[in-house]
Computed example of a mutant assay.
Amino acid sequence: MKTAVLIPCYNEAKTIGRVVADFKEKMPHADIYVYDNNSTDNTAELAEQAGAIVRYEHKQGKGNVVRTMFREVDADCYVMVDGDDTYPADFGPRLEQLVLSGKADMAVGDRLSSTYFTENKRPFHNFGNVLVRRMINFLFRAKLNDIMTGARAFSKDFVKSFPVISKGFEIETEMTIFALDNNFAIKEVPIAYQDRPQGSESKLNTYSDGLKVLKTIVNLFKDTKPLAFFSILSLILLLISFGFFLPILIQFVQTGIVDKFPTLIVISALTVIALLNFFCGVILSVLKKQHRQNFERQLTVLHELARLKQEDAH
């Protein structure tokens, strides 16, 4: 069974050598790939000196790097970690074991149940992690602890069927929602977290990247649960319509007169839009079900091709 350690990097010269060395020590059997994303320092050179296989992705953004890594690397287990030395390498074998034993399609290193809130010195990041966790657990009826961790391991089925849409740091949220929506097995393991070492700077922008994550959640909720999404929109429009219609109805009952025809026309239009939204949700949910059926068939084909490949190898 082949394991690949994937490390997306952008200007991590201060830490990448140590990260590669730690994983070579903890997982000597694994191939370690460092994907450099237009670094302006000597990240790539230091990674190569430490023994990593260095490749490049010139489209900026972590999501773009993950797309290329998943397409180019072939393995049975993929361990992904950031190059900032915030995750001790000893989490790798634990997540790897869960994937290779078939217990997880995505094994997650859970920072939030461990040392994250004491080590991380950025309060808005703490708040954002909790907010995103609560939103996803509520919208997708899950009980996950850490949505945005950069420490993960994946099965081959997950990697080769995951269509990367995000370009930046919202990629972790997209992975989680994809796993939940397609019934992949998710396991979480509490892991230690340490803040970046002195002189190493985070590439995250608290506000702009936070807004991108929230936008990603809304869009993926719409795409994966269209009936629920459009039903909520329809309900909001109907409540607004009813709020404006109620005074008109009371006046008509009391006086037999309707003198707010423009308001009544707008209410009628909102009601029609609400009904159209609901039926759009119904139609899209049928299409989503068909897409899910096709996805399961594609997974079956992937398994069959893998079996035939193994038979040919023997």
Rank of each mutant, 00 (worst) to 15 (best):
residue 1 M to S: 07
residue 5 V to C: 10
residue 5 V to L: 12
residue 6 L to M: 02
residue 9 C to V: 06
residue 11 N to I: 08
residue 16 I to T: 01
residue 17 G to R: 01
residue 23 F to P: 05
residue 27 M to H: 01
residue 29 H to Q: 14
residue 35 Y to R: 14
residue 37 N to F: 01
residue 48 E to H: 01
residue 52 A to W: 03
residue 57 E to F: 06
residue 59 K to C: 05
residue 66 V to F: 15
residue 74 D to H: 08
residue 82 D to N: 15
residue 87 Y to R: 11
residue 89 A to L: 09
residue 94 R to C: 05
residue 99 V to M: 04
residue 99 V to F: 04
residue 102 G to C: 10
residue 103 K to C: 04
residue 104 A to F: 09
residue 104 A to L: 14
residue 107 A to H: 12
residue 108 V to H: 06
residue 115 T to M: 03
residue 117 F to G: 03
residue 126 N to G: 10
residue 129 N to F: 13
residue 136 I to W: 02
residue 139 L to E: 10
residue 146 D to Y: 09
residue 147 I to K: 03
residue 150 G to W: 01
residue 152 R to E: 13
residue 154 F to C: 09
residue 162 F to R: 04
residue 172 E to D: 08
residue 178 F to Q: 04
residue 183 N to H: 14
residue 183 N to W: 11
residue 186 I to G: 15
residue 195 D to E: 01
residue 196 R to C: 11
residue 196 R to F: 09
residue 204 L to A: 10
residue 213 V to W: 03
residue 221 F to Q: 02
residue 222 K to T: 03
residue 225 K to E: 02
residue 239 L to E: 07
residue 242 F to A: 15
residue 251 Q to R: 08
residue 262 P to N: 08
residue 271 T to K: 11
residue 271 T to G: 08
residue 279 F to L: 08
residue 291 H to L: 13
residue 292 R to C: 14
residue 294 N to C: 10
residue 295 F to G: 04
residue 296 E to Q: 11
residue 298 Q to C: 02
residue 300 T to A: 15
residue 314 H to Y: 12
